[in-house]
Design a protein around this nucleic acid. Structure first.
Lengths: 222, 222
DNA sequence: ACAAAAGTGTTCGATATACACCCATGT
DNA sequence: ACATGGGTGTATATCGAACACTTTTGT
């Protein structure tokens, strides 16, 4: 017997309150009814895996066109009491300025700190741990960090993202020098003033310049 | 409809004749009958994905306990004319001293240069390309290269593996210094003499020392 | 003797890290 | 005036890259 059900689970990360947070939903049906879980669902007939993940993402958050990457496939027999279910896990990065659409699935959904989630259904604790590890690694040698910020952001915002995900403080001057060398940020004319501190210059990510780096073989500059 | 067939495909690499080679099988049945393909097959009921990959590996080569890592999952609708087939691809590294067991599947199987394979069935050219890319990346910051060599090997052997996979020459002195710093090779008393050249010292990989590096947070020293 | 691969150190540039003070604004 | 985060430069250590000759063996 080689028939199985195939699902996608999408670990959606964001930055809220200066911390890395993950979207979880409370299950409304057995198994694990009432438990928190990583959002996911069955792949439809004729639907690609990544398309299914993007669909779940949009159903859950109302958001499209975000960073989405395949993570790992979990298929141990017995991981789902309903029978053989193979799940292809993805992870996604949600910009911190995007609000969750009100529960389209009528299911309860909320952000949880990624390092302090509630008990999770199925083997979802493993999936979450794996996603966090992958995100940390990616952050160190890629530029995915920008995907967690609004289009316009300050260097302080960006550094805060890196610190939240990596879980350690970074040196401001070294961080900025590294970014300057990469030359993938475009300084904008505007500033943003927060609280009673000096206004900070806003930047945006330049996909074009990043592509040029890639073309020159500098694949993962971070 | 969420039922699908689940297969595992295993991209098996080795070093032969100083080149990176990949094991391919000629398909005996439709679809793509007579075409070359990456070995694989259906996941059995109650069988884990990695277990299925290890079984395919052993059926095809007679070899067990080799380096095996999940690569990516391909599930585009239409990738298999028989219907919805999701394949979880793995890649494996076969030591260069291991001989293929005579065709247990009665199917033709042979090594092909990884950079010049014949036309492949399904989307297997994509899978192979992805596996090569991953292997190259892994080689640069991990120690998987040892998995392609016999237990006892010379530094020249090891460098040849890296050069074959990366596709570029490496500096002998820099290569050796790096290894010395890592301190994961154990020099043996024996030497091996090849042709009419000076005999070379044999080494073996020390998994114990490698684990110590990992414990100290030096995850991927290469 | 010579062909073949083994073995061995140093220099240089680039990159990563550590570290402290002044600036512009709101209250 | 002071509290808050923004902004800036220098010195040092570490790592990677480039580079050439001697040694040991078989023929």
């Amino acid at each position: 017997m080689s028939e199985a059900k195939v699902t996608v689970d999408v670990v959606m990360f964001t930055i809220r309150e200066g911390r890395l947070q993950v979207l979880l939903v409370r299950r409304g049906i057995p198994p694990f009814e009432g438990q928190w879980a990583i959002p996911g669902g069955f792949v439809l007939a004729g639907e690609g895996l990544e398309a299914a993940a993007a669909r779940e993402l949009e159903e859950e958050t109302g958001v499209r066109d975000v960073y989405l990457e395949q993570l790992y496939t979990f298929g141990d027999p017995g991981r789902d009491p309903r029978g053989r279910v193979v799940t292809v896990a993805y992870f996604a990065l949600i910009r911190s300025d995007l609000e969750l659409a009100a529960g389209s699935d009528a299911a309860e959904a909320r952000w949880w700190p990624a390092d302090a989630p509630p008990p999770l259904a199925f083997d979802h604790d493993r999936i979450l741990a794996y996603a966090i590890e992958r995100l940390r690694n990616k952050l160190e040698y890629t530029t995915v960090g920008f995907q967690l910020l609004p289009e316009r952001f300050t260097l302080g915002d960006l550094q805060a993202v890196y610190e939240a995900v990596l879980g350690r403080p970074l040196d401001k001057r070294n961080f900025r020098r590294k970014l300057e060398l990469l030359d993938i940020l475009v300084p904008l004319a505007e500033h943003r003033t927060a609280g009673r501190a000096r206004p900070a210059r806003l930047y945006r990510f330049s996909a074009a310049r990043f592509e040029k780096l890639r073309d020159k073989g500098i694949l993962f500059p971070f």
